[in-house]
Write a protein that binds this DNA or RNA. Sequence first.
DNA 1: GACATTAATTAACTTTTGTTAATTCAGCCT
DNA 2: AGGCTGAATTAACAAAAGTTAATTAATGTC
Lengths: 202, 202
Amino acid sequence: MLEENKVNHYLDFFDLAPEELMSLFSLAKEKVLKEGEIYVKEGSTTGKLAYIKSGLIRCFLLKENGEETTVLLRWEDQFFTAYDTVLFNQASRFTYQAMEPTVLLEADYQVFMEFLNKNSKFSKAKDYFLISMLAEMMERVESFVLLNPEERYLRLLKDKPNIVQRCPDKYIATLLGITPVSLSRIRKRLANSPIAVSKKMK
Amino acid sequence: MLEENKVNHYLDFFDLAPEELMSLFSLAKEKVLKEGEIYVKEGSTTGKLAYIKSGLIRCFLLKENGEETTVLLRWEDQFFTAYDTVLFNQASRFTYQAMEPTVLLEADYQVFMEFLNKNSKFSKAKDYFLISMLAEMMERVESFVLLNPEERYLRLLKDKPNIVQRCPDKYIATLLGITPVSLSRIRKRLANSPIAVSKKMK
DNA sequence: GACATTAATTAACTTTTGTTAATTCAGCCT
DNA sequence: AGGCTGAATTAACAAAAGTTAATTAATGTC
């Protein structure tokens, strides 16, 4: 289960009765991951939906040359799925790995969605999470078309400082669409001219 | 209204009765845009949802230096909204402009959503369009973290050749996160070594 | 058809990134 | 403490992208 303050937040925010929220949780089972543990491996076809109670999950793709590219990070209070499995019915091209000790609530995607569809009160919650995810992806697309790598890094630092801290730089680099070497150079540039930082942050 | 084949497709795909689909259309009114016409201007606060019957809409942002960056293209059979207005209740940072003669079906976002929520049969359709949009944004994020500009251009050419054709290169360039000058160079490189093209397309 | 306007290309130059490899740094283990 | 491991930094060079401006091509207008 969730902590009491989160439970109350969801009850209030989505206007649910306690029994309704409980019936949702009854569909999910808890899963504990150690730091570094793989949750979904590339090639997997399990259509699970997971809610992150605590921790940090990294979604990455293994390229032909053996290098990893981090595509997505998900953290506490967010949902995630192996999205090409669930949306396109394909084997997952990505691997999902815990970056920290992580606790998930896991349910079958189809079962969960059908359950949500049966009760219209859940539909608001479903929309909320879908739209949150969509908004986040739009913001990311924006950051790619509007900002250069240095500006993207500064924005990420500003918007999600604790996520940057919890994740090695090499993963942050590929998340930003650049190489770890390049990120290191950007960090050096910024350290040498802190004026530039505040100017760009405005 | 829509053409008959599209109507039939939606009736079938979402398992709706003709009256149900009609009741949806009754919420919307048609709007015709000339080529180049502005549909939503930066700073607008109108929370409309639009379905594109035909045509092509460009969503762009005007930067401080006066340059336009194209953030998003939407075309026939897709929905779109001034998303920062609807999702975050802000004045739109973006302008939405018709690239071609365009016909929209337009409805008030809040009214439309409340209507959809009243009938669970519409919920499948709502999810479908939300998830389609999400999937498209995820694919775009992927293309930014996994591909370089040349590869992004080749992929766009491959996946959406007719959209590339219908839109001036300078808008395609900023959509890919690069400058028009750079896109022109990429096109030249590809023209000079067509072998590279087929290799990269594999 | 000549002119005006805008898009696309080319050129010249600067800045940044990618690549590969070497070096330094930091955490961890026994 | 010493040594191992992987992350981060640095270096050196090649390749690509940004910037500004000039040139060419394409399109529409009178």
